[in-house]
């Protein structure tokens, strides 16, 4: 009974009434233990990447200062691009905006292009996965087209659509669609025979089978495709904006390159990386929520 009182600082304990001595220290130690455990977990997750980052920055600083004329050192970047780092929300009209606005414009393009790719990709994937004829007819075409790099689509889409913005959207669409199609098709083909048999014994209608069995069973695969797809569409946006101009992260990088402001490019790259990372996690999280339990036996 007295054990908790001894385990905490026992100085003022004798002065207090006994009931408090029993209740208070127990709660405090338990809370403290939980906080410590949480702190340990957080430290275990955060410390290794922070150490890696610190070491890399240090090496970079070392190399850049001993061999000037190449990449600016991290300290130089901080000096030159301080305003860009600290004020992502400024807007002086035209293309002179903070990085947040560039990233937002790029994200809007990704949202449109990727949504189209998701809808068309899932539909085509279901078709290719469930029909042998469609598979034989379309799969070779897909396998060839999916290896075409995003930038190679740009001149073709410009020639076909004549305008910059639709062309950028098309490039995102065409880049993101292949992993969606292919993974959806695999998911549809891999619906376990047992689930098919359940559908047959229950005499589900084609629509019932599609919504009750095929789609839920393929959902984890579909989200794998969507996750790869959104990563690729983010790759495509930067590339296509470099050539198209206007507002957007890709254009910003190209513009700063022409103005020889390498420090600003480095800052923009960090933004591109972080936004891409966030997109990937977002789709991953969405997939986990939607397909919860679907893969478990």
């Amino acid at each position: 009974m007295a054990l908790p009182a001894y385990s905490t600082d026992s100085g003022p304990a004798p002065a207090k009434p006994p009931a408090e001595i029993l209740a208070m220290p127990v709660r405090r130690t338990r809370l403290a233990a939980r906080a410590a455990a949480l702190g340990n977990d957080l430290a275990g997750v955060l410390v290794p990447p922070l150490v890696t980052l610190g070491v890399l920055l240090f090496l970079w600083e070392l190399i850049a200062t001993t061999k000037p004329g190449g990449l600016p050192a991290p300290s130089m970047i901080w000096l030159e691009s301080r305003e860009l780092i600290l004020h992502p929300f400024y807007d002086r009209g035209g293309v002179d905006k903070g990085l947040f606005w560039h990233a937002l414009t790029s994200l809007q393009r990704v949202a449109v292009g990727f949504s189209c790719a998701a809808v068309v990709g899932i539909a085509l994937g279901v078709l290719v996965g469930s029909s042998k004829v469609a598979h034989r007819g379309l799969d070779p075409l897909f396998q060839v087209l999916r290896t075409v790099p995003p930038l190679a689509w740009l001149p073709i889409s410009l020639a076909a659509l004549h305008q910059a913005n639709p062309s950028a959207l098309f490039v995102i669409f065409i880049t993101a669609i292949w992993p969606v199609i292919i993974n959806t098709a695999v998911g549809v083909r891999n619906v376990p025979q047992d689930y098919r048999n359940v559908g047959r014994v229950l005499r589900l209608s084609p629509a019932g089978y599609f919504f009750k069995i095929l789609l839920p069973a393929a959902t984890p695969y579909i989200f794998t495709g969507l996750r790869i797809g959104i990563g690729m569409s983010w790759l495509a946006i930067v590339a296509s904006e470099m050539l198209l101009g206007g507002v957007g992260v890709g254009f910003f990088i190209w513009d700063q390159y022409n103005a020889s402001r390498i420090s600003d490019i480095v800052v923009a790259l960090v933004w591109v990386g972080l936004v891409g990372f966030a997109l990937d996690r977002l789709v991953g999280l969405l997939g986990r929520i939607v397909s919860r339990g679907a893969s478990a036996g």
Partner: peptide, 19 residues
């Protein structure tokens, strides 16, 4: 001639839909 609910099957590996 075809499967139907008048011949319900209890499958060896339960075949419950996990979702």
């Amino acid at each position: 001639e075809s499967p139907g609910p008048d011949r319900a099957v209890v499958f060896q590996n339960h075949s419950l839909l996990p979702w």
